[in-house]
Simulated scan of single mutants.
Amino acid sequence: MKGYKVFNSDWTCRGYQYEVGKTYEMAESPKCYEMGFHFCKRLVDCFNYYNFDPNNKVAEIEAIGEIDFNDTNSKCCTNKIVILKELTWAEVLDMCNTGKGNSGKRNSGNYNSGDYNCGDSNSGNYNSGHCNSGHHNTG
């Protein structure tokens, strides 16, 4: 199963040092939140668990071992993972937003900054409509 994983800026996560192109395995069966290499099926879901920080490393992975899912299926866990490739921050932004020229996460429309905006040219968070600044605006 393909997925996505976020790492600290030095490619570490939960005591493991990772490297692109390598395979990591543990003998234990995976259990979400307890044991295993955690990842998300959708890239945007990773940022429910990690800061949306361009200093972090983000990679496309493949889970090739046993897989455990949490109750929402947004977070998964495996006992054997391959780090396929690093994603640039531009790729992360493109994959986490729809429209063009957006920064932040889960924006739709064009040229939004902040998070969860729909419409065009909004700044701040949770705006709908066009040309809003601040938070929770409509219109």
Rank of each mutant, 00 (worst) to 15 (best):
R14D: 13
K5A: 07
T88Y: 13
G119Q: 03
C76D: 01
G119D: 00
E91P: 08
G129T: 05
D68W: 12
G119K: 02
D45E: 12
N97W: 09
S74E: 15
G101A: 05
T138M: 10
K85H: 07
E86S: 11
Y16E: 10
S123V: 04
K2H: 13
G3L: 04
Y111P: 01
P54Y: 08
K105Q: 09
Q17V: 06
K22S: 12
N97E: 06
G109Q: 02
W11K: 03
Y116D: 09
G129R: 07
N48F: 14
C77A: 06
K22F: 11
P30C: 01
V44R: 08
W11V: 02
I81Y: 08
M1N: 11
N73Y: 15
S103L: 13
Y24C: 01
D10Y: 11
G101S: 05
W89S: 01
K85C: 04
G129H: 07
K105N: 01
G114P: 04
G65I: 02
V6C: 15
G36F: 08
L84R: 11
E66G: 00
G36Y: 06
C76P: 02
G101F: 13
K22L: 13
Y16T: 09
P30A: 02
N97D: 07
H135S: 13
L84I: 15
F39Y: 15
I83V: 15
S123L: 01
V82D: 00
A90G: 02
L93F: 10
C32A: 14
G129V: 03
N107A: 01
N56Y: 11
N137I: 05
K2W: 12
F69Q: 09
N122S: 02
N117R: 02
G65Y: 09
H38I: 00
R106Y: 13
E60K: 13
C46L: 06
N51V: 08
Y49R: 05
D53C: 12
T23R: 15
G101L: 10
C118A: 14
I67F: 13
K57W: 10
S74I: 12
D120Y: 11
T98C: 08
N79I: 01
K22M: 11
P30M: 05
